[in-house]
Amino acid sequence: MSDGKVEVVRAGALTTVQDLGRFGHAALGVPRSGALDQPAHRLANRLVGNPADAATLETTLTGVAVRATRPVTVAVTGAPAPVHVDGRPAAWGSPVHLPAGAVLGVGAATFGLRCYLAFSGGIALSPVLGSRSTDLLSGLGPAPLKDGDILPLGEPAGAGAPRHHLTLFDGPPRELVLPVLLGPRDDWFTAAAVRTLAAGRFSVSPHSNRIALRLDGPALERAVDGELPSEGMVLGAVQVPPDGRPVLFLADSPTTGGYPVIGVVPEARLSAAAQAPPGLPVRFTPLRNRRPAGRAVSP
C-alpha cells in the first residue's frame, strides 16, 4: 500500500500533531510536549495497529474533519465525541475504515476536552529533536493545523486492528481529584497552606492550556519570602506563583522555573487533568513524599 496523505477539511479550535513527546533535551530548555492524554493516544494507536510512538492528532473541544487520499484505518479516543464518515455515524473508540476520499468528521466533545485521532501508519511529518509533537510553548514541531493543510501518512506497520477490543469510558467526572506528593519546596509554605491545598475548593480556570492547568480558588500562603533561584521543573509540578493560586504543569510547560513547587501530581493522573473542562471542581490530596535527606543509607 503506497503512502497517502491526509487533508485537513476543518481544523477545529486547536488541533495539533502529538506523539509520546520530546525526551533528552530538557537541559537545553526543550519541553517534553507530547499527547496530554497519553493513555488515549496509546489506545488510538493500538486500535489502528500502530506502535505507541506513532503521531496522532489531538483535538480541543470542537473536533476536526479530515479526508485521506488512500484507504486508512482510523480510531477516535479520548473525550467521547460523535464520529462520522461522509455524514454517516461511525464508532468512537473503535477501528473505523475510511475509504479514499471520504471525509472523517469528529464532532464536539460530549464531555472532556481532547480527542485523539490515529491513522494506520501514523502522521509521518519529519520529527524535530526526536518527536513530531507540536510544542505550543517553544514553537517546536508542526504548527497547529489549519484548514487545507496536507499531512503525510506513514506506511502501516502491518499489525492491523486488534480483533477484540473494548473501549470503556467513565461518565463525566464531578470533580478532578489529584494526589500531590509534597516537595521539593513544600517547606516554602505554611502548614496552613498545605491544609488549604487539601481542603480548599479549587476549580479549573478557563485560562488553562497545554502548558498548564490553572486553578481558581484560595491562595496558598508562603512561609518564605523572596525569589526561588530557578530550578528544574517536572510534568505534574504544582507551582505556586506570587498570587498563591496553584498551577499544574502539563506537557508544554517550561523546563526550569523560579516559583516554588509545593508538590508533584503523578504523571498517571495528568490524563484526567487534560480532560478537565473549565469550571470543574478540583480536589488535591497531599501526601508526604519519602524524605530522602537525612535517611541513613549504608553503602
Binding site: 519546596r185 517536572v234 509540578a237 508533584v264 504523571e267 513524599n289 535527606a293
Partner: peptide, 8 residues
C-alpha cells in the same frame, strides 16, 4: 536531596 514526585 529533595523528593520530586515518584521518580525524580
Amino acid at each position: 536531596l529533595l523528593p520530586v514526585g515518584q521518580d525524580s
